[in-house]
């Protein structure tokens, strides 16, 4: 697996710049440490055990995605079956029930663009406000957010459903998108990040020049927040992509299902009278579901890691 960050240069450029802008009270950490310690084979071996643990199930998934329904029954789960049916399975996954899987994939993308995008936008705006403004009610906001999140969501599902139903939102994409717009973790991350990354003097200077608040935000603050935004975007994307319970309650029409719900419906098809058993497509579909996220993590890792770094330094 190749990654854009090489091992010999621990701090990628983006990471470096992200840190350079971070808190004034921290002295800048240098990219290279003097007397870099020797590499340890023992430590590498031990860490490899953890990798084995995290990756083995994914390999199992990939191996079993190559099997037919009867191959799943006949063969050992640890290794390939006689027939290599991966391409057939992928083909079947996308064509089963008139290609409804594609529809679910597109729905998921829609929810991610609107939900995760919107959540990131709201978190960036909110975090910026908490970091750089003093306003009435500010102290109460975050405590309320934390308190609300501590209440188990399953019990709130029915009240939320009834409210949304009255507003005519159930069985529409909005029933999934609107609740996704709130990311308390994103708000927290942006708050901390904005505090560190945007020197207040810079904002003052922009205001002195007569820039409006909106203009100051977009032209001065936003560029400085970029690594943090990527981080929040990735986390909200994961949350939206993996969203299961709320869509389960809100959506009846399979036309609007996200992938998680669709896969679960396929899986439970085996539990119904006369239902076609398609565990092979469930497994292949699961594999296809996680690939885009893994790809996104790989390609964007230098950004999100630097954003997270600034976020976690705060105490």
């Amino acid at each position: 697996m190749s990654t854009p960050v090489t091992t010999s240069v621990p701090a990628a450029p983006a990471e470096d710049s992200g840190r350079a802008k971070s808190a004034p009270r921290l002295r800048r950490a240098k990219a290279h440490r003097p007397g870099r310690p020797k590499r340890s084979k023992l430590l590498t071996a031990l860490t490899s055990l953890v990798v084995l643990y995290t990756v083995a199930p994914l390999i199992w998934l990939a191996v079993n995605a190559t099997k037919t329904q009867s191959g799943l029954g006949d063969s050992n789960g640890l290794w390939f079956a006689d027939d290599f049916a991966l391409w057939d399975n992928i083909h079947d996954t996308f064509t089963y029930h008139d290609g409804v899987f594609t529809r679910w994939l597109l729905n998921t993308l829609l929810y991610v663009v609107l939900g995760a995008g919107g959540a990131t936008l709201l978190a960036v705006l909110g975090g910026y406000a908490l970091a750089k403004f003093d306003f009435p009610g500010k102290r109460g906001i975050f405590a309320t957010v934390i308190g609300a999140v501590a209440v188990p969501g399953t019990a709130l599902a029915v009240p939320t459903f009834l409210m949304f139903s009255k507003m005519g939102l159930t069985d529409t994409p909005w029933a999934v998108v609107i609740p996704s717009l709130v990311s308390p973790f994103g708000l927290y991350l942006m708050w901390v990040f904005a505090t560190e990354a945007i020197p207040t003097e810079l904002l003052e200077a922009a205001r002195m020049d007569g820039a409006s608040e909106a203009r100051t935000f977009f032209q001065v603050a936003l560029p400085l927040l970029a690594p943090g935004i990527v981080t929040v975007l990735l986390f909200t994307t994961v949350a939206t992509w993996n969203n299961y319970f709320l869509p389960l309650i809100m959506l009846k029409d399979p036309e609007w299902y996200p992938l998680t719900l669709g896969l679960s419906a396929w899986n439970s098809q085996a539990e119904t009278v006369g239902g076609e058993v398609i565990f092979n497509l469930v497994i292949t579909g699961s594999l296809i579901t996680i690939l885009p996220l893994i790809a996104a993590f790989l390609f964007l890792q230098k950004y999100w890691q630097s954003g997270l770094a600034a976020g976690s330094v705060k105490e």
Binding site: V158, F161, S165, G168, T170, K252, D253, P254, A265, T272
Partner: peptide, 23 residues
């Protein structure tokens, strides 16, 4: 024809819709 739900999930959706008086 809406056929993607069965068993408990089907009844949950039905009860919720009846509760809401809609859908």
């Amino acid at each position: 024809l809406v056929s993607e739900r069965s068993g408990d999930k089907h009844y949950t959706a039905l009860s919720n819709a009846v509760s809401a008086g809609k859908g």
